[in-house]
């Protein structure tokens, strides 16, 4: 399974998100200092889930980072997170 698929799977399992985008941005960072050049190192996540309702920005980021702890300790060098509760309609 690719790192991107693992991220998607773990976030889906942890938060049952109503919106989830996982974007591999590794190509944008190829060759810069600290980039491992694996093609699976830099990701951006956009996630909306009811689990985030009433939480602070710091709490939401911590929740997402905790769900991806193994990836952050391993192949993922950088992770940009935009986490929100679903907008009210």
């Amino acid at each position: 399974m690719s790192v991107e698929e693992t991220i998607r799977e773990k976030l889906t399992a942890a938060f049952a998100p109503s919106l989830l985008e996982v974007i591999n941005e590794s190509d944008k960072h190829r060759g810069h200092a600290g980039s491992p050049g694996t093609g699976e190192s830099h990701f951006a996540v956009k996630i909306e889930a009811a689990a985030f309702a009433g939480t602070s920005r710091i709490a939401r980021q911590r929740m997402v980072m905790a769900a991806l702890e193994d990836e952050l300790a391993g192949p993922v060098h950088a992770l940009s997170i935009k986490a929100d509760a679903p907008a009210h309609d």
Binding site: R57, I58, Q61, M65, L72, S80
Partner: peptide, 19 residues
Amino acid sequence: WPTIPQLYVKGEFVGGCDI
């Protein structure tokens, strides 16, 4: 908080780059 950068304002943690 596992990543850097980290911003503090008046002794209080604000967050990292995304925040």
